[in-house]
Write a protein that binds this DNA or RNA. Structure first.
Length: 308
DNA sequence: AAGGAACGCAACCGCCCCGTC
DNA sequence: AGACGGGGCGGTTGCGTTCCT
């Protein structure tokens, strides 16, 4: 069959991560940046497989992650996007930069699926998504958009990684429309992962939080650790572009940005909502409401269908 | 208060894609 | 051109927590 699993070696630890492991992983990534996951276990001494390290980072330790309490707006977006994209959680997550694909997937499976089912059977819901869920999907359209999106992201990435560029450039992405595409946002590429609080500060906070909450179980302490990380991540990044981001967010969706508890510097979000604004669509600006954006997409799908 | 059921979520597994040699 | 390895992704599982009886 295929290759043997990467984690079937003896001595590879599985199960919940301990705060100590989190600290080791984070401090390593602080120092070297994410990537080259294969080398992480050997260089850090962690008894974890590379995949586990990557997953832990992307789903849990990465700064800017918002956890729990999905807002109604987020719910709607997920439903919309799931309708349009199917179970492409990474792609969906790229439009909700504060959420991980795993989080969205879990939320879909545990909440939204039931909710929609209930609404469809009971016809009691007020969500227009119920009808949207039964709408034909202009999938080919999205496929092409995603392809373009990905290519743009790759181009931007290669530009950004060129030797003369500074190491940390996610802040620059705010003003650089060419680096905005975020189909691969949930990945651990340097575009979104290298700008966070200083190592000392992060680790200090992490340790502090941990010391204040001595381990009862590894799981419980992971939650403590997570909170610490989210705190520092938010504190360090929100100030830079949070206001700008939330304005865009608000204008895009009519959200009350406060309810979204913006934490990160993910201006890619607003940009990613109009992934091709700078490509082929002249009038799709960052101010465009989602309903209009969707309408445009659907309309254009219809146009293309007609033209083929 | 105790036991069981249901729920939620972190983490694992396995497949696939892509880059490199 | 094909083999190989690393990384990404979606599906699934296992376990801790919460709710219900």
């Amino acid at each position: 069959m295929g290759r043997p699993p990467c984690c079937d070696k003896e001595g590879v630890k599985k199960g919940p991560w301990t705060p100590e492991e989190d600290i080791i992983l984070v401090s390593f990534i602080q120092e070297h940046g994410p990537g080259n996951w294969r080398a992480v276990p050997t260089k850090t001494g962690l008894s974890r497989c590379s995949k586990s390290c990557r997953l832990r980072w992307t789903n849990y330790l990465r700064p800017g992650i918002k956890r729990g309490n999905f807002t109604e707006q987020e719910e709607k977006m997920i439903i919309h996007l799931q309708d349009l994209l199917g179970n492409r959680w990474a792609a969906i997550a790229s439009y909700l930069p504060q959420r991980t694909d795993n989080d969205i997937k879990n939320y879909w499976n545990t909440h939204l699926k039931k909710k929609l089912k209930k609404m469809q059977t009971g016809c009691e819901g007020s969500f227009e998504e119920v009808s949207a869920a039964s709408r034909p999907i202009p999938r080919g359209q999205w496929e092409r958009r995603l392809q373009t999106d990905i290519q743009m992201a790759k181009r931007a990435l290669s530009e950004a990684l060129s030797p003369e560029k500074p190491y940390c450039f996610s802040a620059a992405s705010n003003s650089n429309p060419s680096s905005n595409s975020s189909s691969s946002f949930s990945s651990t590429k340097p575009t979104q992962s290298l700008c966070y609080a200083s190592s000392e500060d992060n680790i200090a906070r992490l340790l502090k939080g941990w010391m204040q909450n001595p381990p009862k179980s590894s799981r419980a302490n992971s939650a403590v650790t997570q909170t610490s990380f989210n705190n520092f991540a938010g504190a360090d990044t929100a100030s830079s572009s949070g206001a700008e981001m939330s304005e865009t967010f608000e204008s895009l969706f009519g959200f009350d940005h406060q309810s979204l508890d913006l934490e990160s510097s993910n201006s890619e979000f607003s940009q990613s909502l109009s992934p091709e604004a700078n490509e082929s669509k002249p009038d799709i600006g960052p101010e465009m409401p989602f309903s209009l954006l969707e309408k445009w997409l659907l309309d254009e799908a219809g146009v293309q269908d007609n033209s083929t």
